[in-house]
Write a protein that binds this DNA or RNA. Sequence first.
DNA 1: AGTTGTATAGCACGAACGTTCGTCTTAAAC
DNA 2: GTTTAAGACGAACGTTCGTGCTATACAACT
Lengths: 231, 231
Amino acid sequence: MDITRETTTVTTGRRAQGERTRQAILETAVDIASAEGLEGLTIGRLAARLSMSKSGLFAHFGSKEDLQLATIEAARAIFIHEIIRPAFEAERGMPRLWKLCDIWLSYVQGGVFSGGCFFAAAAAEFDGRPGPVRDRIAEIMKEWLDTLRRAVVESQEAGQMERDVDPAQLAFEFNSFELGANWSFQLYGDKQAFARAREAILERLRRYSTLSGSSLLPPPKEKRRSRARAR
Amino acid sequence: MDITRETTTVTTGRRAQGERTRQAILETAVDIASAEGLEGLTIGRLAARLSMSKSGLFAHFGSKEDLQLATIEAARAIFIHEIIRPAFEAERGMPRLWKLCDIWLSYVQGGVFSGGCFFAAAAAEFDGRPGPVRDRIAEIMKEWLDTLRRAVVESQEAGQMERDVDPAQLAFEFNSFELGANWSFQLYGDKQAFARAREAILERLRRYSTLSGSSLLPPPKEKRRSRARAR
DNA sequence: AGTTGTATAGCACGAACGTTCGTCTTAAAC
DNA sequence: GTTTAAGACGAACGTTCGTGCTATACAACT
């Protein structure tokens, strides 16, 4: 409560230009980083894209690492705003679980970040470089995995999913499908990968559902066979 | 045979020295690249690790891109030697399909490359940078995906797997599990991820198997369970 | 013995990197 | 109207990058 008031007081009372510029920088930074990586996110390139001087831009962050960390936070905010929040408007349980996966796939497909999933790329880039950046990425991805796992648990608690399903196992599998779809799309431009991921996820949701023909999930595709032939 | 003698004898000929050095360079290059990425694979660092001069090393390759491409080929050779070849010793059909997945997981777990799967890392790094390097990586990963898909088809032809399974779909799912396990292990050091991937793959193989309780696959539960707990 | 060709080293280059510094502008505070 | 400080700038730092040129050590062949 105090914090929000504090920030508004500062921004309106004092010159708001600094924070506004910083925000514009981070917006561009997220875009560059998702395509070129957090290391390819260069201060010079960033400054050029924003028609700023390197030094003027750099003054907003104490170091390159700080810039990377701030960029990660900005990407997390977008992720929460674009995926978590809308998915949580769905009813707790299987609908929410499905919507989490569905929206995630849509957000990669729709190109919210031009380089695919920001965190998948960042994780692959930094998984071998210890430090605060890697730690923060790992934390955020664990948040996501935990959100999936909790949605599975809640599905079971709501009596919508069989109880002998291991939530962590299912979360692992769903996350893997998303990584797989992202990988296939980024490397081959293969849009069909999203359909494959959705099919894999839905197949499992239906199989573990306690309600046969549940209206909690979208209706099954008609002839899966004929579609598979056309390739 | 010759190689052991070669190392002891210096008089193998000046002309053979070049290729031998080149091979030693690539061996180290693959290791560095798997951990630091193909861009982090720096000529200076590589030369330092090998106690060579930058220029002397550089002379073996016309450009950095050539070095990257040569490193990719070296990694592919290792991949074929360590995974494809031993898996193809298994009987064509489900045993081979399973062994492909199983060995892949073992090879990441065993740390053949210190940065996890070389190609998963390279694909993530280059998926947004057009050029020969990216193209070659995409080709090689397609080879792998195709190997999986063909193993599925052969399982069906051998009458071991239900025919209404879409081979490309199953290959996508298995590849996703492998990417997921690699991701989880690299980011969290989570060895349990390999057990999860194996469980997911085996579950599907058993479900689609035409032979219930098939001896073509490892037996369910038992040791794998207790092993998964010990972490 | 002298020539030739290969393998490596030495050195320097231009560019780009992250970073620091001093300076100018300008809106707000007094 | 003067003072203050935030914000942006240009120049330069030292380092590392990839990449050329040139020289040398040595095996092979004439």
